[in-house]
Design a binder for these strands. Structure first.
Length: 262
DNA sequence: ATGTCGTGCTGCGCACGA
Protein backbone atom coordinates (compact mmCIF):
# COMPACT_ATOMS: atom_id res chain seq x y z
CA UNK A 1 0.00 0.00 0.00
CA UNK A 2 1.43 3.36 -0.96
CA UNK A 3 0.34 6.86 -0.12
CA UNK A 4 1.25 9.82 -2.32
CA UNK A 5 1.40 13.30 -0.85
CA UNK A 6 1.94 16.46 -2.90
CA UNK A 7 2.67 20.07 -2.09
CA UNK A 8 1.83 22.83 -4.56
CA UNK A 9 1.74 26.58 -4.31
CA UNK A 10 -0.97 27.33 -6.89
CA UNK A 11 -0.76 31.16 -6.79
CA UNK A 12 -4.58 31.56 -6.63
CA UNK A 13 -6.81 28.48 -6.79
CA UNK A 14 -9.44 30.40 -8.79
CA UNK A 15 -6.99 31.48 -11.49
CA UNK A 16 -5.43 28.00 -11.48
CA UNK A 17 -8.54 25.83 -11.36
CA UNK A 18 -8.29 24.30 -14.89
CA UNK A 19 -4.58 23.55 -14.39
CA UNK A 20 -5.21 22.15 -10.90
CA UNK A 21 -8.08 19.90 -12.04
CA UNK A 22 -6.02 18.59 -14.99
CA UNK A 23 -3.06 17.83 -12.75
CA UNK A 24 -5.19 16.16 -10.05
CA UNK A 25 -6.83 13.93 -12.67
CA UNK A 26 -3.45 12.94 -14.10
CA UNK A 27 -1.25 12.64 -10.99
CA UNK A 28 -4.04 11.33 -8.70
CA UNK A 29 -2.23 12.18 -5.45
CA UNK A 30 -3.90 10.86 -2.29
CA UNK A 31 -3.18 13.99 -0.26
CA UNK A 32 -2.44 17.50 -1.53
CA UNK A 33 -1.22 20.49 0.45
CA UNK A 34 -2.01 23.71 -1.40
CA UNK A 35 -0.59 27.16 -0.70
CA UNK A 36 -1.48 30.69 -1.82
CA UNK A 37 -5.10 29.83 -2.56
CA UNK A 38 -5.70 33.62 -2.34
CA UNK A 39 -9.35 33.31 -1.37
CA UNK A 40 -11.57 33.17 1.66
CA UNK A 41 -12.98 29.72 2.51
CA UNK A 42 -16.31 30.50 0.80
CA UNK A 43 -14.53 31.28 -2.48
CA UNK A 44 -12.69 27.97 -2.71
CA UNK A 45 -13.92 25.83 -5.65
CA UNK A 46 -14.81 23.03 -3.28
CA UNK A 47 -17.41 21.22 -5.41
CA UNK A 48 -15.16 20.89 -8.46
CA UNK A 49 -12.43 19.30 -6.35
CA UNK A 50 -14.80 17.15 -4.31
CA UNK A 51 -16.06 15.77 -7.64
CA UNK A 52 -12.60 14.25 -8.13
CA UNK A 53 -13.00 12.30 -4.89
CA UNK A 54 -11.28 14.61 -2.43
CA UNK A 55 -12.24 15.75 1.02
CA UNK A 56 -11.35 19.43 1.33
CA UNK A 57 -10.37 21.69 4.21
CA UNK A 58 -9.27 25.29 3.82
CA UNK A 59 -7.77 28.07 5.89
CA UNK A 60 -8.40 31.00 3.60
CA UNK A 61 -7.77 34.73 3.54
CA UNK A 62 -8.81 37.53 1.21
CA UNK A 63 -6.32 38.37 -1.59
CA UNK A 64 -3.20 36.92 -0.01
CA UNK A 65 -1.90 33.67 1.45
CA UNK A 66 -4.40 30.92 2.30
CA UNK A 67 -3.72 27.18 2.53
CA UNK A 68 -5.77 24.03 1.93
CA UNK A 69 -5.54 20.25 2.27
CA UNK A 70 -7.19 17.79 -0.13
CA UNK A 71 -7.43 14.13 0.86
CA UNK A 72 -8.89 10.99 -0.70
CA UNK A 73 -9.07 9.61 2.86
CA UNK A 74 -11.26 11.00 5.65
CA UNK A 75 -9.96 14.06 7.47
CA UNK A 76 -10.37 13.43 11.18
CA UNK A 77 -9.12 16.72 12.56
CA UNK A 78 -8.54 20.17 11.09
CA UNK A 79 -6.24 22.56 12.97
CA UNK A 80 -5.97 25.98 11.29
CA UNK A 81 -3.25 28.45 12.29
CA UNK A 82 0.30 28.07 13.55
CA UNK A 83 0.37 28.14 17.38
CA UNK A 84 2.50 30.67 19.22
CA UNK A 85 1.08 34.09 18.27
CA UNK A 86 -2.61 34.85 18.72
CA UNK A 87 -2.20 38.22 16.97
CA UNK A 88 -0.95 36.68 13.69
CA UNK A 89 -3.76 37.12 11.15
CA UNK A 90 -2.02 35.64 8.10
CA UNK A 91 -3.44 32.29 6.92
CA UNK A 92 -0.24 30.31 6.37
CA UNK A 93 -0.68 27.04 8.27
CA UNK A 94 -3.25 24.26 8.26
CA UNK A 95 -2.71 20.95 10.04
CA UNK A 96 -4.84 17.84 9.72
CA UNK A 97 -5.01 14.28 10.94
CA UNK A 98 -5.87 12.02 8.04
CA UNK A 99 -7.33 8.53 8.40
CA UNK A 100 -5.08 6.74 5.91
CA UNK A 101 -5.81 3.03 5.32
CA UNK A 102 -2.87 1.87 7.46
CA UNK A 103 -3.37 4.34 10.28
CA UNK A 104 -3.44 8.08 10.94
CA UNK A 105 -1.02 10.44 9.21
CA UNK A 106 -0.57 14.01 10.42
CA UNK A 107 -0.09 16.56 7.66
CA UNK A 108 0.44 20.31 7.54
CA UNK A 109 0.20 22.69 4.60
CA UNK A 110 2.75 25.46 5.11
CA UNK A 111 3.17 28.81 3.39
CA UNK A 112 6.22 30.28 5.04
CA UNK A 113 6.64 34.07 4.76
CA UNK A 114 8.81 35.31 1.88
CA UNK A 115 10.62 37.80 4.13
CA UNK A 116 11.84 40.31 1.55
CA UNK A 117 13.16 42.90 1.80
CA UNK A 118 15.79 41.82 4.31
CA UNK A 119 16.59 43.29 6.71
CA UNK A 120 13.26 44.78 7.74
CA UNK A 121 9.96 44.01 9.46
CA UNK A 122 9.00 41.39 6.86
CA UNK A 123 12.24 39.51 7.47
CA UNK A 124 11.71 39.73 11.23
CA UNK A 125 8.24 38.22 10.71
CA UNK A 126 9.72 35.39 8.64
CA UNK A 127 12.29 34.49 11.29
CA UNK A 128 9.72 34.74 14.10
CA UNK A 129 7.37 32.49 12.09
CA UNK A 130 10.15 29.94 11.59
CA UNK A 131 10.87 30.00 15.31
CA UNK A 132 7.19 29.29 16.02
CA UNK A 133 7.22 26.50 13.45
CA UNK A 134 10.26 24.89 15.08
CA UNK A 135 8.66 25.04 18.52
CA UNK A 136 5.43 23.53 17.22
CA UNK A 137 7.30 20.85 15.25
CA UNK A 138 9.10 19.90 18.45
CA UNK A 139 5.73 19.23 20.10
CA UNK A 140 4.47 17.27 17.10
CA UNK A 141 7.59 15.08 16.96
CA UNK A 142 6.88 13.96 20.54
CA UNK A 143 3.75 12.23 19.21
CA UNK A 144 6.02 9.79 17.34
CA UNK A 145 3.56 9.41 14.46
CA UNK A 146 3.91 9.72 10.69
CA UNK A 147 4.05 13.49 10.14
CA UNK A 148 4.66 15.42 6.93
CA UNK A 149 5.08 19.19 6.97
CA UNK A 150 4.65 20.09 3.32
CA UNK A 151 4.79 23.46 1.72
CA UNK A 152 6.38 26.53 0.24
CA UNK A 153 9.15 27.18 2.76
CA UNK A 154 10.56 30.15 0.86
CA UNK A 155 14.04 28.85 1.73
CA UNK A 156 16.72 27.81 -0.77
CA UNK A 157 18.55 25.18 1.31
CA UNK A 158 21.85 25.07 -0.62
CA UNK A 159 23.67 27.21 -3.17
CA UNK A 160 23.18 24.33 -5.63
CA UNK A 161 19.39 24.76 -5.28
CA UNK A 162 19.50 27.90 -7.44
CA UNK A 163 21.02 28.78 -10.81
CA UNK A 164 23.30 31.54 -9.51
CA UNK A 165 24.06 31.92 -5.79
CA UNK A 166 25.30 35.47 -6.33
CA UNK A 167 21.83 36.59 -7.46
CA UNK A 168 20.33 35.21 -4.22
CA UNK A 169 23.13 36.06 -1.79
CA UNK A 170 21.32 38.98 -0.11
CA UNK A 171 17.79 37.59 -0.54
CA UNK A 172 15.56 36.53 2.36
CA UNK A 173 15.22 33.09 0.71
CA UNK A 174 18.93 32.34 0.94
CA UNK A 175 20.38 34.44 3.78
CA UNK A 176 22.40 32.46 6.35
CA UNK A 177 19.81 33.16 9.06
CA UNK A 178 17.05 31.71 6.86
CA UNK A 179 19.11 28.61 6.13
CA UNK A 180 20.01 28.26 9.81
CA UNK A 181 16.32 28.38 10.77
CA UNK A 182 15.59 25.72 8.14
CA UNK A 183 18.49 23.58 9.39
CA UNK A 184 17.10 23.89 12.91
CA UNK A 185 13.94 22.09 11.74
CA UNK A 186 16.12 19.26 10.47
CA UNK A 187 18.15 19.09 13.68
CA UNK A 188 14.88 18.52 15.54
CA UNK A 189 14.62 15.25 13.65
CA UNK A 190 12.75 16.17 10.49
CA UNK A 191 14.02 14.73 7.21
CA UNK A 192 13.83 16.80 4.04
CA UNK A 193 12.46 14.30 1.52
CA UNK A 194 14.22 15.51 -1.64
CA UNK A 195 17.59 15.82 0.07
CA UNK A 196 17.21 12.34 1.54
CA UNK A 197 16.14 10.43 -1.56
CA UNK A 198 17.49 12.45 -4.49
CA UNK A 199 19.75 15.34 -3.53
CA UNK A 200 20.72 16.37 -7.05
CA UNK A 201 21.70 19.97 -7.68
CA UNK A 202 19.53 22.32 -9.78
CA UNK A 203 16.18 20.56 -9.38
CA UNK A 204 13.82 23.50 -9.11
CA UNK A 205 10.26 23.94 -7.82
CA UNK A 206 9.86 27.64 -8.68
CA UNK A 207 10.51 29.74 -11.76
CA UNK A 208 9.62 33.43 -11.57
CA UNK A 209 7.22 34.75 -14.22
CA UNK A 210 9.59 37.68 -14.72
CA UNK A 211 12.68 37.97 -16.88
CA UNK A 212 12.11 34.75 -18.82
CA UNK A 213 13.29 32.68 -15.87
CA UNK A 214 11.40 29.55 -16.99
CA UNK A 215 12.66 29.80 -20.57
CA UNK A 216 16.23 30.23 -19.31
CA UNK A 217 16.00 27.39 -16.77
CA UNK A 218 16.66 29.86 -13.96
CA UNK A 219 14.78 28.36 -11.02
CA UNK A 220 15.07 27.77 -7.30
CA UNK A 221 14.11 24.87 -5.00
CA UNK A 222 11.94 26.21 -2.20
CA UNK A 223 9.03 23.74 -1.86
CA UNK A 224 9.83 20.94 0.54
CA UNK A 225 8.40 17.93 2.39
CA UNK A 226 9.72 17.63 5.95
CA UNK A 227 9.09 14.21 7.49
CA UNK A 228 9.11 12.78 10.98
CA UNK A 229 11.19 9.57 11.41
CA UNK A 230 7.97 7.52 11.19
CA UNK A 231 7.26 9.05 7.75
CA UNK A 232 10.88 9.32 6.53
CA UNK A 233 11.41 5.59 7.14
CA UNK A 234 8.53 4.94 4.75
CA UNK A 235 9.58 7.39 2.03
CA UNK A 236 9.94 5.56 -1.29
CA UNK A 237 10.29 8.27 -3.92
CA UNK A 238 10.20 12.00 -4.50
CA UNK A 239 9.30 13.74 -7.75
CA UNK A 240 9.06 17.30 -9.03
CA UNK A 241 6.27 17.52 -11.62
CA UNK A 242 8.12 19.96 -13.86
CA UNK A 243 5.72 19.56 -16.80
CA UNK A 244 3.07 21.66 -15.06
CA UNK A 245 5.28 24.76 -15.30
CA UNK A 246 5.20 24.63 -19.10
CA UNK A 247 1.40 24.58 -19.38
CA UNK A 248 -0.59 27.69 -20.36
CA UNK A 249 -1.56 29.78 -17.32
CA UNK A 250 0.90 27.85 -15.12
CA UNK A 251 1.57 28.62 -11.48
CA UNK A 252 5.10 29.90 -10.89
CA UNK A 253 5.54 26.95 -8.48
CA UNK A 254 5.73 23.24 -9.38
CA UNK A 255 4.14 20.37 -7.41
CA UNK A 256 6.51 18.15 -5.42
CA UNK A 257 5.19 14.63 -4.75
CA UNK A 258 6.37 12.07 -2.22
CA UNK A 259 5.42 8.38 -2.22
CA UNK A 260 5.30 6.64 1.16
CA UNK A 261 4.69 3.01 2.08
CA UNK A 262 2.10 4.10 4.62
C1' DA B 1 17.61 48.46 -14.28
C1' DT B 2 13.95 45.89 -16.31
C1' DG B 3 11.07 41.94 -17.28
C1' DT B 4 5.11 38.96 -15.11
C1' DC B 5 1.44 37.42 -12.79
C1' DG B 6 -2.78 37.67 -9.44
C1' DT B 7 -5.82 40.40 -6.34
C1' DG B 8 -8.88 44.20 -5.18
C1' DC B 9 -10.11 48.97 -5.02
C1' DT B 10 -8.58 54.20 -4.88
C1' DG B 11 -11.52 50.97 -10.06
C1' DC B 12 -11.52 50.29 -16.08
C1' DG B 13 -5.46 51.92 -14.17
C1' DC B 14 -3.34 51.62 -10.20
C1' DA B 15 -0.86 49.69 -5.73
C1' DC B 16 0.77 45.78 -3.58
C1' DG B 17 2.85 41.11 -2.93
C1' DA B 18 5.71 37.66 -4.85
Amino acid sequence: MTLTLASWNVNSIKARLPNALDWLREAKPDIVCLQEIKTVDEGFPRLEIEDLGYNVITHGQKSYNGVAILSKFPIEEALPGLPGDESDEQARYLEAVIAAPNGPVRVASIYLPNGNPAPGPKYDYKLAWMDRLARHAEDLLKLEEPLILAGDYNVIPRDSDCWDPEVWEMDALALPQSRAAFDRLKWLGLTEAFEQLDGRAHQYTFFDYQAGRWQKGHGIRIDHLLCSPQAADRLESIEIHKKTRGEPKASDHIPIVGTFSL
